[in-house]
């Protein structure tokens, strides 16, 4: 992956590049200060902080991909992007660095969190796995529906169903902790399952990506 390509892809987004950064570096910290102030002390606010974080961070992991892949999926003359790149049709080589770049920013936020709370490493691992799940699910849906924005819509619906609609099926398929303190056990069981599922989505995504022009 060429960093220059990533830079140019981001440059094409103009101000819209900064949306996730605004959420990560301004919106969430401000909200977190409010939560601490509301809860009376830092430790009491732990649940609130990480419950709110998982509402925004995984979803926003797909923001840059949505905008960048608008060119790859529905841009005029997008076929040229699938035939001049010698690395082939599969665009994981572009998605992976976008994802990594996002995770670095999430890492900075969580590094900040680690000053105030313990258990942040596990929360970070959970968040990375949630982001990975969203990205791989989004990637698969993007190449199935052939529309990044429809894919984003389906991710949004997934989040709403699993966080805000209490149904057994929704709870069963929910990747969110929704106010529970994350434990190593949950990482090793529930999140391992979701990791495998994410890999499956990724494989299906790659398959659909390969057949985008076939």
């Amino acid at each position: 992956m060429n960093i220059r390509l990533l830079y140019l892809s981001f440059k094409n987004l103009k101000i819209y590049y900064f949306i996730p950064l605004f959420f990560l570096y301004i919106f969430l910290p401000v909200l977190n200060f409010g939560m601490v102030s509301m809860s009376g002390n830092i430790e009491n606010s732990y649940i609130l902080v990480f419950r709110e974080a998982e509402k925004y961070i995984p979803l926003l992991s797909f923001w840059w991909i949505t905008l960048i892949f608008k060119e790859y999926i529905s841009g005029d003359g997008n076929e040229v992007l699938y035939c001049i790149d010698s690395s082939g049709k599969v665009k994981l080589s572009l998605i992976a660095p976008i994802f990594l770049w996002y995770i670095i920013h999430v890492g900075v936020l969580f590094l900040g969190y680690s000053i105030f709370w313990d258990n942040v490493l596990l929360e970070f691992i959970k968040t990375v796995l949630q982001c990975f799940f969203f990205v791989s699910l989004g990637y698969m849906l993007m190449y199935i529906s052939e529309s990044p924005i429809i894919s984003f819509m389906l991710l949004l619906i997934y989040e709403l169903l699993t966080i805000f609609i209490n149904s057994d099926i929704a709870n069963y398929i929910s990747i969110f902790e929704n106010g529970n303190r994350i434990t190593m056990n949950a990482i090793a069981t529930k999140y391992l399952g979701f990791l495998l599922l994410s890999i499956a989505f990724l494989v299906i995504g790659v398959y659909k990506n390969k057949r985008f022009y076939y």
Binding site: K11, N12, L13, E71, D76, G77, I84, S86
Partner: peptide, 20 residues
């Protein structure tokens, strides 16, 4: 695999990365 690097292609419609 190097073949694609030897090919220049202009599709029917072209209008990518318009903000660059």
């Amino acid at each position: 695999s190097a073949f694609t690097e030897n090919v220049g292609y202009l599709p029917q419609k072209f209008g990518l990365f318009k903000e660059l």
